[in-house]
Nucleic acid binder design. Structure first.
Lengths: 239, 239
DNA sequence: GATAACAACCTGTCATACAGGTTTCAAGGG
DNA sequence: CCCTTGAAACCTGTATGACAGGTTGTTATC
């Protein structure tokens, strides 16, 4: 039925994929930035000569990946960089057992040894304070694992942010979901309060090294932190 | 009437988001693995008591993130781990100028210093051969930049695969799109054939170190490779 | 028992309809 | 003149029905 001069020749694995490409292509060719509005569904429908169903599924797909923002009544807009899609991919890999928690931790260790060094070199005063603040809140709430975990996650994300490289932030944040699922296990393995406080001390050491601007020391503390975390997970039988 | 507390809001007021969660939840609770079939759209429609439109947009969204595979006539199936979504996020960040090529290279350098060390430790004979093969093909086709680039990308992906950690593969592959867009620029900066061959020699050194099983040497060569690549991009004026 | 036609089911796409949110702009009141 | 107000125009969210075409299992035929 529809035969609008297929340019290029790709027999198309589906009209929706074509529409998705058209939209991303539009963003690129128009040089749109985060917040800029996209064409309406109706306009896209006319331009591509397909039904609104197809255009809509394309928009919705991009929205699911958080490349665009949609909300009722308003045109879709280009989205700010967001972890949404990435964390879903990681989660999917974990739940379908295609990747293991241990493998994620190896990647985290690799990346965070770098973010912490960069943070020590590039952090602003405010960022150093935020990092130290998270560590302090971990200690103050150390009886409540859930709260400690949230501050732990915030701690690592703050370090990534202080690296001033959003790609690192993106990846670190994408792993936070996995952390939420396994953190408590590692915490329980640290049977004594002493062990738990020692682990919190590790965070404070990292924060301090960042504050002092010593990348080598910061990386060293981070490595120790991860080695202990991985060991705790291994002791708990997490593959 | 603006409510800035909207960012990162969890309360998704859409039926589609609910449906997406229901599907991923189904995968989790049923313990599905890659290749397993999902309920049909009709079944989901009944279960969630929403229209097929909604269910379909949910399926399509998951398909766009490559969490599930869809094809006409057949039920959707759980997908194998794939880079699709991740590379789109990275591309989006680049095209909307929220991240720079330089930042991507810093992340690549960080990750590939690790993958190359792991590859040296864990590679099979076949993997070592594949890596060396890519390096050889780079040399054999060194007059043709496009082909050299493809083998370069294959080279790095093969190293990631040899690390035996799919998360590394995932990330490295996600960056390949960026490489395709900037590689030629770096190549041109290496004005003389001599420089270009020197760069290929760098790849061969890496391959050899992996074959010898020397992680420290491999990482060192990889670091040099990236330092030169970044310098080439900087010389070309890429931010 | 093998094979070919068929029926049941499934996804891909289209058309239409309507509810509800958002923006725009002009008319009316201060 | 400015501000408020309200309606119209536009937009997205969801539902329904229809049909084409692919896939699979079953049955009838050889």
């Amino acid at each position: 039925m529809q035969d609008p001069t297929e340019t290029g020749g790709e027999p198309s694995p589906g009209l929706v994929s074509t529409a998705i490409q058209a939209i991303t292509q539009h963003i690129r060719s128009e040089g749109l930035a985060a917040g800029d509005p996209l064409p309406s569904e109706a306009a896209m429908t006319r331009q591509l000569n397909v039904s609104r169903t197809v255009v809509r599924e394309a928009f919705r797909s991009l929205s699911a990946m958080r490349l665009i923002d949609m909300s009722a009544g308003r045109r879709a807009t280009v989205a700010k960089l967001d972890t949404g899609a990435m964390s879903m991919v990681i989660e999917h890999g974990i739940t379908t057992q295609q990747i293991s928690v241990h493998q994620v931790y190896d990647v985290r260790r690799t990346i965070e040894m770098r973010t912490v060094a960069l943070a020590a070199l590039r952090r602003t005063e405010a960022e150093a304070a935020a990092i130290a603040q998270s560590a302090r809140l971990m200690r103050e709430n150390f009886q409540n694992p859930e709260i400690v975990m949230e501050h732990d996650i915030a701690f690592h994300e703050a370090i990534a942010a202080a690296s001033h490289n959003p790609v690192f932030s993106l990846i670190v944040t994408a792993f936070s979901g996995v952390t939420r699922r396994t953190w408590v296990i590692g915490w329980r393995t640290r049977s004594s309060s002493e062990d738990q406080l020692k682990m919190i001390k590790g965070h404070e050491d990292i924060a301090e090294a960042i504050l002092k601007g010593d990348p080598r020391l910061a990386a060293e503390h981070m490595a120790q932190h991860f080695d202990k975390s991985v060991k705790a997970l291994l002791d708990a039988g997490i593959a």
